[in-house]
């Protein structure tokens, strides 16, 4: 006799975000594959806990499945931070599949307190600025920027800018008040949080992506029957990671055209020379990242990064 489960799925973005739908779809697929014995309920908007705590929530059983941004806690998940390095990924679906396929073996060490489900990225994005057009790395000097994650924060510091921290819903407010001049933010979400109303200049370049993961409470998973475990595993794989990334990526990419259509915005591309300058400027970040990985000692950074690039090449998502 199989036990019935009702999983609590928790995330921290608004219920209107495409992630809500992605998680509902995930839950429906698990329910179907389990023959209806695993049902779920999605709790959006930090109803069960704060954004920063979502990894711990799955580990401790406060929720059963959670959505995690590993970059929110610098130092804690250094390996997956490779995905945050600038000019690495060109698109969401392939990037997600490549990241997931690559990270699976590292997750066993780095996210060992939970059952790792999948990892994915959103569409590449870049700087959106209120005060000035950011074209070359030198432009960052003296600017106040709200970075997407720890790697971008390091980049800003290294280029002579300063970081301003805030949660996503507060970004509009801090730009409006001049606390920050610019933000790194994905395109569609820019509209969702109303940040397009307070920014003017948008760099269109694959400067960065943010890595995310779905993780599951280990005890819950271990209590399941083999058939139920299989229903979970069926939906915790590279293919599903691609689907989640693609679904979200479409939402973000749709934002590019909407913002281009806004007369108050100037969306600009970079020349190959300018991109070269950015890539060169980003080189020290690789070193910083590698040091962080070495310090925690769960992987050999050089090998790991080479593998990630190979994986990206395989899934056609390595930024050129």
């Amino acid at each position: 006799q199989e036990k019935n489960f009702e999983l609590k799925i928790s995330h921290w973005v608004p219920a209107t975000h495409s992630l809500q739908k992605a998680l509902e779809d995930w839950a429906a697929a698990v329910e179907k594959d389990s023959g209806g014995t695993i049902k779920s309920k999605v709790f959006p908007a930090q109803q069960l806990g704060k954004a920063f705590d979502h990894y711990d929530m799955a580990r401790d059983g406060i929720a059963d499945v959670t959505y995690v941004n590993p970059g929110y806690q610098p130092g804690r998940f250094p390996i997956i931070g490779a995905g945050e390095l600038p000019f690495l990924m060109s698109e969401a679906k392939g990037g997600s599949m490549a990241l997931d396929a690559w990270y699976r073996k590292y997750a066993e060490k780095e996210m060992k307190d939970v059952k790792f489900c999948l990892a994915f990225v959103h569409s590449p994005s870049s700087f959106h600025s209120r005060t000035k057009k950011i074209v070359v790395p030198d432009d960052i000097k003296g600017m106040k920027i709200r970075p997407a994650h720890a790697t971008m924060a390091n980049f800003v510091t290294q280029l002579g800018g300063t970081n301003v921290q805030s949660s996503a819903p507060e970004v509009r407010d801090i730009i409006e008040r001049g606390v920050a001049d610019a933000v790194t933010f994905p395109w569609g979400s820019l509209l969702l949080f109303g940040i397009d109303k307070v920014t003017k200049y948008d760099m269109e370049a694959p400067l960065y992506v943010t890595t995310f993961a779905f993780v599951i409470n280990k005890d819950k998973y271990n209590q399941m029957s083999d058939k139920q475990k299989k229903a979970i595993d069926n939906n915790c794989n590279t293919e599903t990671a691609g689907k989640v990334g693609e679904y979200w990526g479409k939402m973000e990419d749709a934002g590019i055209d909407k913002i281009k259509a806004e007369s108050s915005h100037e969306v600009y591309k970079l020349t190959p020379e300018q991109i070269g300058l950015w890539k060169k400027a980003a080189e020290p970040l690789v070193k910083t990242w590698a040091e962080g990985v070495k310090k925690k000692g769960d992987a050999d950074p050089d090998a790991a990064l080479a593998e990630l690039k190979a994986s990206l090449t395989k899934y056609n998502a390595l930024a050129q």
């Binding site: 806690q73 610098p74 130092g75 804690r76 720890a150 924060a153 510091t157 970081n163 921290q165 925690k296």
Partner: peptide, 16 residues
């Protein structure tokens, strides 16, 4: 104890 074990650092200066 968890914060210590998990090596959580500050954003800018990477202090524990």
């Amino acid at each position: 104890r968890g914060t210590y074990n998990d090596n959580v650092l500050t954003f800018d200066m990477h202090m524990p």
